[in-house]
């Protein structure tokens, strides 16, 4: 019995220690990425190349999801609002939920699974095939050459993708609310504009998406760089990128929402 508890405690301690060590590695890695970021902006060609892979290739999935989520929001919102005779508030409902929450969060989740996993797999594969080691021997810092451009491409892409997601979502909501259900066009936009504050709602939404972008990009490049250099190692790292990113996005979203919007929720 005592033995069992001791065994369990030892296991717990070991996993906590491993977790903390990894967190430390990730932090040091982040500092290294920031230090090595100078050349990324001095040579925009690499950054543009990665922007294409992280941003442009994620466009379709983000735009389509945004459109559909906006349409579903409007349909479901109508069901509720019509009971209170407040269907004119549809614009507010759609815009606020997209700009504050769904835009940054869902775009972040989609980005993690589309671009984040690809970044991890790519860097992991470069490690497995000794391409990173080859760079190091050629006196080229792989963090500056491979990791930093991908990190910054992610940081730049996600806020833009989140804004596009929200925009398409609002358009989808408009299609359903105004064109399909027949809510007054002026009321839809007018109420939205009266209720949504550009700094408070839109600005905080953008801040959220920037924070998520940093988190997801860092997780993606770190998992790739830290992957065990085997086929199984890379596939495990790719999975970890998606799972960790999702959890981190949701946790950060809660924390940010508490700080940003608590004022209006309470009083």
């Amino acid at each position: 019995m005592i033995d069992g508890i001791t065994h369990w405690l030892i296991g717990l301690g070991a996993s906590v220690r491993a977790g903390v060590t990894r967190l430390g590695f990730a932090t040091r890695f982040m500092i290294a990425v920031f230090k090595a970021s100078g050349p990324t902006f001095a040579r925009p060609r690499l950054l543009i190349h990665e922007l294409y892979h992280a941003g442009v290739l994620s466009l379709i999935i983000v735009l389509m999801s945004g459109l559909f989520i906006g349409m579903v929001l409007a349909l479901q919102g109508y069901e509720t609002l019509v009971r209170f005779g407040a269907t004119e508030a549809m614009g507010v409902l759609v815009a606020l939920s997209l700009v504050r929450e769904l835009g940054p969060v869902v775009a972040g989740l989609l980005f993690a699974s589309r671009a984040g996993s690809a970044i991890t797999a790519e860097i992991g594969l470069m490690k497995t095939t000794e391409q990173l080691a080859a760079m190091e021997v050629m006196a080229v810092d792989p963090v500056a050459r491979v990791v930093a451009p991908r990190f910054w491409a992610g940081v730049i892409s996600l806020p833009l993708l989140a804004a596009l997601f929200s925009t398409l979502g609002i358009y989808g909501g408009y299609l359903v609310a105004v064109k399909l259900i027949g809510i007054d066009n002026g009321a839809f936009w007018g109420q939205m504009q009266a209720a949504v504050d550009w700094r408070y709602d839109v600005g905080n939404g953008v801040i959220k998406s920037v924070v998520f972008a940093c988190a997801v990009s860092l997780i993606a490049v770190f998992e790739g760089f830290d992957a065990t250099p085997t086929a199984e190692g890379v596939s495990a790292a790719t999975t970890r990128t998606v799972v960790t990113s999702a959890l981190v996005i949701l946790a950060l979203d809660f924390i940010l929402t508490v700080f940003m919007f608590r004022g209006s929720a309470v009083g």
């Binding site: 790519e122 470069m126 095939t129 000794e130 391409q131 080691a133 080859a134 021997v137 050629m138 006196a139």
Partner: peptide
């Protein structure tokens, strides 16, 4: 880094950049 610039290394499977 200066030392590595004067040195070449051929890796086991070439380690060519695949992209």
């Amino acid at each position: 880094f200066a030392h590595r610039r004067k040195l070449g290394m051929l890796f086991q499977f070439g380690a060519l950049f695949t992209d």
